[in-house]
Design a protein around this nucleic acid. Structure first.
Length: 496
RNA sequence: GGGGAUGUAGCUCAGUCGGUAGAGCAGCGGCCUUUUAAGCCGUGGGUCGCGGGUUCGAUUCCCGCCGUCCCCA
């Protein structure tokens, strides 16, 4: 809740701010730092004590006061900046009576600027012997307790700024996220891919099967949809001759919220002309491996107790092979028999609609009986045509597509395929989707006439992949919930 | 949408078989010049998520609502 009234601690801090203001120099902006806490630890942490004494290092640091141990006329304190923490030694003898008293009047969370000389304490800890100290910004609200930190998940998500101040693990998670995204971007750029930004607001939402968010443009008086995927725009770029292209950006899907779903989430999609789904799988594997190495320094990870070595080759098997493996009661011939599949769905207490072909029925069975069991990295291939309206038909088996999904830890991490570049086939697939939509399938795709027009100019043979960034970061940062890897996850509004 | 858990001081948590609540840290006052969850002495702080009901009396029991977490659809 957004507290309107001041508790005793906030009142005390507010009063201190009043004093500071009355002195006429509150919130100064003249202090400049020349060092970061962790850089000093890295550079001088192991330096010989006598060397530090003979050639003292002067440092100017800015940071937040996180803890303090006052022993009369001398004190130790810890300040935290973006890089980490360092201990300060603050004494009346070094600062003078007035400034030392001022230091003792500081509160946890206050942001201060200090100057001092590096030295080592009796216990060997690298510290700054402060000879100059000033308050730069006042923390008017008290921080959570230093030992247990912030435990309430609601506060951690609503007030992520507080979580970031006091929770080292949170800072670590978002560092992993930043390194992961950077590694993926670098990997693609090094291979000659261009980064593009395509529309977030689309007149026809496409590229995936999902309910979109709807909005309205007043000046044009038209309905627009927040994108559910960038796919159809990126492929327009391939038509336009940007033959290797990628985008890392947000998608929006108007669906439920869960530990694995946020209404807005981040997706990497890339497209490569003159490539097929096999090459796309290889590149997916390579990029994920490199991201793990960059973010964690290793490809051997532990996800919620599960050991996964992303350095080993990922498994590859077809949808039908995997369904057979987990459902020994089904024979090969059963997998395309709608009646048998309907019986199986009933046995699994899953709904089945008459309009569904074998492909949709098979995928429902796959999701229920196989997906959660695929713990080690596994590419599942040969998705049915019926559930793959943008993927190219397989040359040998026209009822399946040259498509794959990557499963790790029982979750879909990536989805890719050789792209359907035959405009007549694509138009027919769109028509089938529109029929499904008219029959009541809210998630079915719309007919995108401009996309067909683009394909009619000719799209080279192309492979494309979408990779869920949030889920990859969950995996690498060992986090069980998507909310832990999104800085500001969606929550219901606070009561005022 | 259904089920389960949860909401108490700034934070982390106890507790009240119904008689308006405690601890630690943080705060405030004092002592303390090598601490690191510093220590010692003293001390203030609560709409017990919100709204109804039952009751002499509700933070506690009942109903509804809201938030959060988990599971299922």
């Amino acid at each position: 809740m957004v507290d309107q009234e001041l508790n005793d601690q906030m009142q005390v801090r507010r009063d201190k701010l009043g004093h500071w203001r009355s002195e006429g120099h509150a919130y100064p902006n003249g202090f400049r730092r020349d060092a970061l806490a962790d850089d000093l630890q890295q550079r001088y942490g192991d330096m010989d004590t006598t060397v530090l004494e003979q050639e003292p290092i002067e440092a100017r640091l800015g940071g937040r006061l996180m803890s303090r141990r006052v022993m009369g006329k001398a004190s130790f304190a810890d300040i935290q900046d973006q890089s980490g923490r360092i201990q300060l030694f603050v004494s009346r003898d070094n600062l003078g009576e007035e400034v030392y008293a001022r230091f003792k009047g500081l509160d946890f969370g206050d942001i201060i600027g200090v100057e001092g000389l590096l030295f080592r304490t009796k216990t060997g800890e690298l510290s700054v012997k402060v000879h100059s100290l000033q308050l730069l910004s006042k923390a008017l609200r008290p921080l959570p307790e230093k030992w247990h930190g912030l435990a309430d998940p609601e506060t951690r998500f609503r007030q992520r700024y507080v979580d970031l101040i006091v929770t080292e693990a949170t800072r670590r998670t978002f560092q992993i996220r930043a390194e992961t995204v950077a590694a993926l971007r670098d990997g693609l750029r090094q291979r000659g891919f261009y980064e593009a930004e395509t529309p977030m607001m689309q007149p026809v939402p496409g590229g995936a099967t999902a309910r979109p968010f709807v909005t309205h443009h007043h000046a044009l008086d038209m309905t627009l949809y927040l994108r559910i995927a960038p796919e159809l725009y990126l492929k327009r770029l391939v038509v336009g001759g940007i033959e290797q292209v990628f985008e890392i950006n947000r998608n929006f899907r108007n669906e439920g919220i869960s530990p694995r779903h946020n209404p807005e989430f981040t997706m990497l999609e890339w497209y490569e002309a003159y490539a097929d789904h096999v090459r796309a799988m290889d590149l997916t594997e390579t990029l994920i491996r490199a991201a793990a190495q960059a973010a964690l320094g290793t490809t051997a990870i532990n996800y919620q107790g599960l050991e996964i070595d992303l350095g080993k080759p990922f498994h590859r098997l077809t949808v039908m092979e995997s369904v057979r493996a987990h459902n020994p009661d089904l024979a090969d011939a059963d997998l395309r028999n709608p009646a048998v599949l309907a019986a199986k769905l009933a046995q699994l207490h899953l709904p089945c609609q008459p309009a569904w072909g074998w492909g949709k029925r098979l995928i429902e069975i796959f999701e229920k009986t196989v997906e959660g069991h695929l713990q080690q990295p596994t590419f599942i291939t040969e998705y049915p045509l019926e559930v793959s309206p943008l993927a190219r038909r397989n040359d040998l088996d026209p009822e399946v597509t040259d498509r794959f999904e990557l499963m790790i830890a029982g979750r879909e991490l990536a989805n890719g395929f050789s792209e359907l570049n035959d405009p007549e086939d694509q138009a027919a697939r769109f028509r089938a989707q529109v029929e499904a939509k008219d029959a009541g399938d809210e998630e079915a795709m719309c007919f995108d006439a401009d996309y067909i027009r683009a394909l009619e100019y000719g799209m080279p043979p192309t492979a494309g992949v979408g990779l869920g960034i949030d889920r990859l970061v969950m995996l690498l940062a060992d986090q069980p919930s998507i909310r832990e890897v999104i800085l500001f996850p969606h929550l219901r509004p606070e009561q005022s």
